[in-house]
């Protein structure tokens, strides 16, 4: 098709705080854009139809499915992947808790899981175990059985509340 429609789209966005300009295929979803075009392989592609959560990352301050977002739609957006979240130190405590409690084995689900858990903790300082399970209901983990993940998130929530109280 021609005229107003095109098979490639020019986008300018910020990825992990860095400006990026690219000409992308219109059909390119965000995960392939990050992995294949930018070499950021931290975000994983699993099912590619919204079910498994392996591609969960942060766009404009909210978690989204990278496989259900076209790169072409993100002109002007702010994208944070696990690489950026790690480097910034923003989720250091959560990552440490995952390691301490064996909340990952193969690690395939972990980048998406961390993005989902980080968002829960941003909005709910004192989530119940049910709240945690509900919030990660869209993030499949084939290895851990979830219990250790819930433990890790609950521990970080408690630790952050302790820190907040100490700071008062």
């Amino acid at each position: 098709m021609t005229g107003s429609f095109s098979s490639h789209v020019e986008i300018t966005l910020r990825v992990n705080g860095e400006p990026v300009t690219a000409r992308v295929e219109a059909r390119r979803h965000l995960i392939d854009f990050l992995r294949l075009d930018l070499g950021l392989t931290g975000s994983h592609a699993g099912c590619e139809h919204g079910v498994c959560g392996a591609c969960t990352l942060r766009v404009d301050g909210e978690i989204v499915r990278g496989c259900l977002t076209l790169a072409a739609q993100l002109d002007g957006s702010e994208v944070w992947t696990i690489e950026g979240l790690s480097d910034s130190g923003a989720i250091r405590d959560l990552q440490d808790a995952f390691v301490a409690r064996n909340a990952l084995q193969c690690g395939f689900c972990t980048p998406g899981m961390l993005a989902a858990c980080a968002e829960l903790l941003d909005h709910n300082a004192d989530p119940s175990r049910d709240d945690i399970r509900e919030h990660i209901s869209g993030n499949y983990c084939r290895c851990t059985g979830y219990e250790a993940i819930v433990d890790a998130v609950a521990a970080v929530a408690a630790a952050r509340r302790g820190l907040a109280r100490a700071a008062e």
Binding site: F5, S6, E25, R27, E48
Partner: peptide
């Protein structure tokens, strides 16, 4: 899988 080639307009 990935989408087939497509054309796009905003």
């Amino acid at each position: 899988m990935k989408p087939a080639p497509l054309s796009y307009a905003r």
